[in-house]
């Protein structure tokens, strides 16, 4: 096991998969000569050349479509958005083309493509750069949505995403890139659709994903001071999410708190809450609660942004309400 950053883990995943399969290429803004806006692609241009590490103009709609066409033809594109908030000018490509072409062609074409980049707030870059569109894309039937919180999963899931024969939307976190963690030295894949248990406790189940998993873990630590222990489940894959793992925990704790950075209305936590109440109604001792981003655009001001994001205080308050 080596201790590396989340950024390095992604870099290793890209390099290993490009080494393994000549059909894999990386495309996006500043991925090549600039070495990546967040240095995720550092060194890849030197190693694989400009044919496979393709710098694009600022044309998200066009280069997303290029990815679609290349995937239809049989290549395995990894398309980087410098920020997932920039993907919205390519929404048509992502929803209509990635989301429909296999189905609409009667299954004639596969779309083995990964779209990846950072999403979420917490770095004071304002409302237009701080979106969490995971739930928006999860609303498209065929899209797989992945959001790793730890370096090991970042590497293992990106490798799985690249080897998947289906489109995967891969959400990283700008605040996670510098996070260090143990990553196995040997080759490994993290399965898509399986959650990770980050902390075990019998009083409460907390489900989270991406950066919010770390906030949830901090809150669970603080909760322990109250003498209450929480199961903390990191989803890793938002869609399809690991219902069975959550169910197992809820059947033990009978209380569920969901922590998600996206805005509340129809966020992925609403789907989980629906499924759990629907299928485990008799197991619940309290209403399911959700701690989400507050229902306003992201403010620039640091103090305000800290209040808008899910934070330890709001998670603790919700947990205590559930346990009361």
């Amino acid at each position: 096991m080596a201790k590396i950053t989340y950024r390095q883990a992604l870099n290793q995943a890209l390099a290993e998969e490009m080494e393994r399969d000549p059909a894999v290429f990386l495309m996006g803004e500043e991925v090549g000569e600039y070495q990546g806006a967040f240095k995720v692609s550092q060194g890849l241009l030197q190693r694989f050349g400009p044919k496979r590490v393709v710098d694009t103009p600022i044309s998200e709609a066009a280069f997303s479509g290029v990815g679609v066409g290349a995937a239809l033809y049989g290549l395995r594109p990894v398309v980087e958005f410098m920020n997932w908030s920039f993907s919205f000018v390519a929404f048509d490509q992502l929803v209509n083309n990635v989301g429909s072409l296999r189905f609409m062609s009667g299954g004639q074409f596969d779309l083995p493509i990964v779209f990846r980049g950072p999403s979420g707030g917490g770095t004071q870059i304002g409302a237009t750069h701080s979106h969490c569109p995971e739930s928006w894309f999860a609303g498209v039937p065929v899209l797989t949505v992945v959001s790793p919180a730890f370096p090991e999963d970042a590497k293992g899931l990106l490798k799985s995403a690249i080897r998947s024969n289906n489109p995967v939307f891969f959400f990283e976190g700008e605040r996670l890139y510098g996070l260090e963690g143990e990553v196995p030295d040997a080759e490994f894949l993290t399965p898509i659709g399986q959650a990770r248990i980050c902390r075990e406790g019998g009083d409460l189940t907390i489900v989270s994903g991406g950066y919010s998993t770390h906030t949830a873990l901090s809150a669970a630590g603080a909760l322990a001071a109250d003498g209450k222990e929480a199961d903390v489940i990191d989803l890793r894959t938002i869609k399809p999410y690991d219902f069975d793992r959550i169910a197992k925990s809820v059947q033990k704790t009978n209380r569920l708190l969901i922590v998600e950075e996206n805005k509340p209305f129809a966020g992925w936590g609403a789907q989980i809450a629906y499924d759990i109440q629907h299928r485990l109604f008799d197991w619940l001792d309290a209403p399911i609660l959700r701690v989400t981003g507050l229902d306003i655009p992201q403010p620039y001001n640091a103090k305000l942004e800290g209040q808008v994001l899910p934070n330890v205080e709001r998670i603790l308050a919700a947990a205590r309400q559930l346990l009361a």
Binding site: V68, G69, Y73
Partner: peptide, 25 residues
């Protein structure tokens, strides 16, 4: 034949991707 596409202009980018792949391969 890579389709029939109904969002006006959308398929031109996909077309560029086909040509990109032809060049790549």
């Amino acid at each position: 034949f890579y389709g029939g596409h109904a969002i006006v202009g959308s398929h031109t980018a996909v077309a560029a991707g086909l040509a990109f792949a032809q060049q790549y391969e």
